[in-house]
Protein backbone atom coordinates (compact mmCIF):
# COMPACT_ATOMS: atom_id res chain seq x y z
CA UNK A 1 0.00 0.00 0.00
CA UNK A 2 1.37 3.36 -1.03
CA UNK A 3 1.92 5.73 1.88
CA UNK A 4 0.53 9.23 1.34
CA UNK A 5 0.87 10.90 4.71
CA UNK A 6 1.34 10.15 8.41
CA UNK A 7 1.06 11.97 11.73
CA UNK A 8 1.79 11.02 15.31
CA UNK A 9 0.34 12.56 18.41
CA UNK A 10 1.31 11.77 21.99
CA UNK A 11 -0.72 13.19 24.86
CA UNK A 12 -1.57 12.65 28.51
CA UNK A 13 -4.65 10.67 29.48
CA UNK A 14 -6.66 13.79 30.30
CA UNK A 15 -10.33 14.10 29.24
CA UNK A 16 -9.69 17.42 27.43
CA UNK A 17 -7.35 15.57 25.05
CA UNK A 18 -10.22 13.47 23.63
CA UNK A 19 -11.37 16.52 21.69
CA UNK A 20 -7.80 17.32 20.61
CA UNK A 21 -7.38 13.78 19.24
CA UNK A 22 -10.60 13.67 17.20
CA UNK A 23 -10.16 17.18 15.78
CA UNK A 24 -6.54 16.44 14.82
CA UNK A 25 -7.54 13.24 13.01
CA UNK A 26 -10.51 14.92 11.27
CA UNK A 27 -8.24 17.74 10.09
CA UNK A 28 -5.68 15.22 8.87
CA UNK A 29 -8.43 13.29 7.03
CA UNK A 30 -9.77 16.34 5.15
CA UNK A 31 -6.79 15.98 2.80
CA UNK A 32 -8.65 13.22 0.95
CA UNK A 33 -12.14 14.69 0.66
CA UNK A 34 -14.01 12.41 3.02
CA UNK A 35 -17.56 13.72 3.13
CA UNK A 36 -18.91 15.38 6.28
CA UNK A 37 -20.74 12.27 7.40
CA UNK A 38 -17.53 10.18 7.09
CA UNK A 39 -15.61 12.80 9.09
CA UNK A 40 -18.27 12.78 11.84
CA UNK A 41 -18.04 8.99 12.01
CA UNK A 42 -14.24 9.07 12.20
CA UNK A 43 -14.46 11.64 15.01
CA UNK A 44 -16.85 9.46 17.03
CA UNK A 45 -14.67 6.35 16.56
CA UNK A 46 -11.50 8.20 17.64
CA UNK A 47 -13.34 9.73 20.59
CA UNK A 48 -14.47 6.28 21.76
CA UNK A 49 -11.03 4.69 21.44
CA UNK A 50 -9.27 7.57 23.26
CA UNK A 51 -11.97 7.71 25.96
CA UNK A 52 -11.52 3.96 26.53
CA UNK A 53 -7.76 4.44 26.91
CA UNK A 54 -8.34 7.14 29.54
CA UNK A 55 -11.27 5.61 31.45
CA UNK A 56 -10.39 1.92 31.24
CA UNK A 57 -6.69 1.77 30.28
CA UNK A 58 -5.54 4.34 32.83
CA UNK A 59 -8.63 4.12 35.08
CA UNK A 60 -9.12 7.88 34.91
CA UNK A 61 -5.56 8.73 36.03
CA UNK A 62 -4.41 11.79 34.04
CA UNK A 63 -0.71 10.86 33.94
CA UNK A 64 -0.77 8.02 31.41
CA UNK A 65 0.44 8.44 27.85
CA UNK A 66 -1.80 7.86 24.83
CA UNK A 67 -0.16 7.50 21.43
CA UNK A 68 -2.17 8.15 18.29
CA UNK A 69 -0.84 7.43 14.80
CA UNK A 70 -2.89 8.33 11.73
CA UNK A 71 -1.68 7.05 8.36
CA UNK A 72 -3.14 7.85 5.01
CA UNK A 73 -2.59 5.14 2.43
CA UNK A 74 -3.65 5.10 -1.19
CA UNK A 75 -6.99 3.47 -0.37
CA UNK A 76 -7.58 3.97 3.32
CA UNK A 77 -7.09 5.96 6.49
CA UNK A 78 -5.63 3.93 9.36
CA UNK A 79 -5.72 5.21 12.93
CA UNK A 80 -3.91 3.43 15.76
CA UNK A 81 -4.56 4.39 19.37
CA UNK A 82 -2.29 2.85 22.00
CA UNK A 83 -2.03 3.01 25.76
CA UNK A 84 0.23 1.32 28.28
CA UNK A 85 -2.50 0.96 30.86
CA UNK A 86 -3.98 -2.04 32.62
CA UNK A 87 -5.13 -3.81 29.45
CA UNK A 88 -8.21 -5.96 28.99
CA UNK A 89 -8.13 -9.43 30.55
CA UNK A 90 -11.22 -10.73 28.73
CA UNK A 91 -11.15 -9.08 25.33
CA UNK A 92 -13.99 -11.15 23.81
CA UNK A 93 -16.30 -10.03 26.60
CA UNK A 94 -15.22 -6.38 26.39
CA UNK A 95 -16.13 -6.33 22.70
CA UNK A 96 -19.73 -7.38 23.40
CA UNK A 97 -22.31 -4.57 23.18
CA UNK A 98 -23.52 -3.36 26.55
CA UNK A 99 -20.40 -4.48 28.41
CA UNK A 100 -18.88 -1.79 30.57
CA UNK A 101 -17.06 -1.74 33.88
CA UNK A 102 -18.69 1.64 34.56
CA UNK A 103 -22.49 1.51 35.09
CA UNK A 104 -22.90 5.02 33.60
CA UNK A 105 -21.08 4.16 30.40
CA UNK A 106 -23.21 2.21 28.03
CA UNK A 107 -20.69 -0.27 26.67
CA UNK A 108 -21.25 1.35 23.29
CA UNK A 109 -17.68 2.36 22.53
CA UNK A 110 -16.84 -0.67 20.39
CA UNK A 111 -20.36 -0.69 18.88
CA UNK A 112 -19.79 2.81 17.51
CA UNK A 113 -16.24 2.01 16.38
CA UNK A 114 -17.46 -1.08 14.48
CA UNK A 115 -20.46 0.74 13.01
CA UNK A 116 -18.55 3.77 11.81
CA UNK A 117 -15.27 2.25 10.60
CA UNK A 118 -14.62 -0.43 7.97
CA UNK A 119 -12.20 -2.37 10.17
CA UNK A 120 -11.57 -2.47 13.92
CA UNK A 121 -8.77 -4.55 15.41
CA UNK A 122 -8.01 -4.68 19.11
CA UNK A 123 -4.91 -6.06 20.75
CA UNK A 124 -4.73 -6.11 24.51
CA UNK A 125 -2.99 -7.92 27.31
CA UNK A 126 -3.61 -7.56 31.04
CA UNK A 127 -0.99 -5.23 32.54
CA UNK A 128 0.53 -4.39 29.14
CA UNK A 129 -1.93 -1.99 27.56
CA UNK A 130 -4.29 -1.84 24.62
CA UNK A 131 -3.87 -1.05 20.94
CA UNK A 132 -6.89 -0.27 18.76
CA UNK A 133 -6.59 -0.05 14.98
CA UNK A 134 -9.38 1.72 13.10
CA UNK A 135 -9.55 1.70 9.31
CA UNK A 136 -11.79 3.78 7.07
CA UNK A 137 -11.73 3.06 3.36
CA UNK A 138 -11.44 6.14 1.19
CA UNK A 139 -14.56 7.20 -0.69
CA UNK A 140 -15.06 5.09 -3.85
CA UNK A 141 -14.46 7.72 -6.49
CA UNK A 142 -11.25 8.86 -4.96
CA UNK A 143 -10.05 5.28 -4.57
CA UNK A 144 -10.63 4.66 -8.27
CA UNK A 145 -8.78 7.86 -9.14
CA UNK A 146 -5.84 6.84 -6.98
CA UNK A 147 -5.69 3.43 -8.62
CA UNK A 148 -5.71 5.03 -12.06
CA UNK A 149 -2.83 7.32 -11.06
CA UNK A 150 -0.70 4.56 -9.57
Amino acid sequence: MRLRNRMKLEFLSRPENVSLARVAVATFATEVDFNLSDLEEIKVAVSEAVSNAIVHGYEGKPTGTVLLTATLYQNELEIVIEDRGRGIADLARALQPGTSSDPERMGLGFVFMKSFMDEVDVWSEAGQGTRVKLVKTLPGELRAQNLAES
Partner: peptide
Protein backbone atom coordinates in the same frame (compact mmCIF):
# COMPACT_ATOMS: atom_id res chain seq x y z
CA UNK B 1 -22.20 19.88 18.17
CA UNK B 2 -20.77 16.46 19.04
CA UNK B 3 -21.87 13.50 21.15
CA UNK B 4 -20.35 10.09 21.87
CA UNK B 5 -21.04 7.29 24.35
CA UNK B 6 -19.77 9.41 27.29
CA UNK B 7 -22.49 12.03 26.63
CA UNK B 8 -25.11 9.35 26.02
CA UNK B 9 -24.02 7.73 29.30
CA UNK B 10 -24.93 10.92 31.20
CA UNK B 11 -28.44 10.86 29.70
CA UNK B 12 -28.87 7.13 30.38
CA UNK B 13 -27.56 7.44 33.94
Amino acid sequence: TFIDSSGLGVILG
